[in-house]
Amino acid sequence: MENTSHSTNPFRRLFQIDVSKHVEKKGLFSYLSWPFAVAQLRLADPDASWEVRRFDGLPYLSSELGFFVEVAVTVQGVTLSQIHPVLDNKNRPILAPTPFDINTSIQRCLVKAIALHGLGLSIYAGEDLPDLEDAGNASKTGEGSPEVPVPVVKPRRTATAAKVTNLPTKEDRETPQPGSEHFLTAAQKKFIERLIAETGTQVAQLLAYFGFDSLETIPRSEVTRVIAALETKKRRAA
Rank of each mutant, 00 (worst) to 15 (best):
Glu2Pro: 11
Ser5Ala: 08
His6Trp: 04
Ser7Pro: 00
Ser7Met: 08
Asn9Tyr: 04
Phe11Val: 04
Arg12Gly: 02
Arg13Phe: 09
Leu14Asp: 00
Phe15Tyr: 11
Phe15Met: 04
Gln16Ile: 03
Ile17Tyr: 01
Val19Pro: 00
Ser20His: 05
Lys21Glu: 06
Val23Thr: 10
Lys25Thr: 12
Lys25Glu: 12
Lys25Val: 13
Leu28Gln: 12
Leu28Pro: 04
Phe29Gly: 11
Leu32Asn: 05
Ser33Cys: 10
Pro35Glu: 02
Gln40Asp: 00
Ala44Phe: 05
Pro46Ala: 15
Ala48Val: 11
Ala48Glu: 14
Trp50Ile: 13
Glu51Pro: 03
Val52Tyr: 00
Arg53Thr: 13
Phe55Gln: 02
Asp56Tyr: 07
Tyr60Asp: 07
Leu61Tyr: 05
Ser62Phe: 05
Leu65Val: 09
Leu65Gln: 07
Gly66Met: 09
Gly66Trp: 07
Phe67Arg: 02
Phe68Glu: 10
Ala72Trp: 03
Thr74Tyr: 09
Thr74His: 06
Gly77Leu: 08
Val78Arg: 13
Ile83Ala: 14
His84Glu: 15
Lys90Ala: 14
Arg92Asn: 15
Ile94Arg: 01
Ala96Ile: 07
Pro97Ser: 10
Pro97Glu: 03
Thr98Glu: 07
Pro99Trp: 02
Phe100Arg: 13
Phe100Ser: 12
Asn103Cys: 10
Ile106Lys: 00
Ile114His: 02
Gly118Glu: 01
Leu119Tyr: 00
Tyr124Trp: 09
Tyr124Phe: 14
Tyr124Ile: 08
Ala125Ile: 10
Ala125Thr: 09
Gly126Leu: 08
Leu129Trp: 05
Gly136Arg: 01
Ser139Asp: 07
Glu147Ser: 15
Glu147Lys: 04
Pro149Ser: 14
Val150Gly: 08
Val150Gln: 06
Val152Trp: 01
Val152Thr: 09
Lys154Asn: 06
Pro155Glu: 04
Pro155His: 04
Arg156Asp: 04
Ala159Asn: 13
Thr160Leu: 15
Val164Met: 11
Thr169Leu: 04
Thr169Met: 02
Glu174Pro: 01
Pro176Trp: 06
Gly179Thr: 11
His182Tyr: 15
Phe183Ala: 08
Phe183Thr: 07
Phe183Cys: 07
Leu184Asn: 02
Lys190Ile: 11
Lys190Pro: 05
Ile192Thr: 03
Glu193Val: 11
Arg194Leu: 12
Arg194Pro: 01
Leu195Ser: 05
Ile196Asn: 02
Ala197Lys: 14
Gln202Arg: 13
Gln205Leu: 14
Leu206His: 07
Leu207Thr: 07
Leu207Ala: 12
Leu207Glu: 06
Tyr209Pro: 01
Tyr209Val: 10
Phe210Ala: 10
Phe210Glu: 06
Leu215Pro: 03
Ile218Cys: 12
Ile218Pro: 06
Pro219Gly: 06
Ser221Val: 10
Ser221Asp: 07
Glu222Pro: 03
Thr224Asn: 11
Val226Met: 07
Val226Cys: 08
Ala228Asn: 12
Ala228Tyr: 06
Ala228Phe: 05
Ala229Thr: 11
Leu230Asp: 01
Glu231Tyr: 08
Glu231Cys: 03
Lys233Gln: 13
Lys234Phe: 05
Lys234Tyr: 06
Ala237Cys: 03
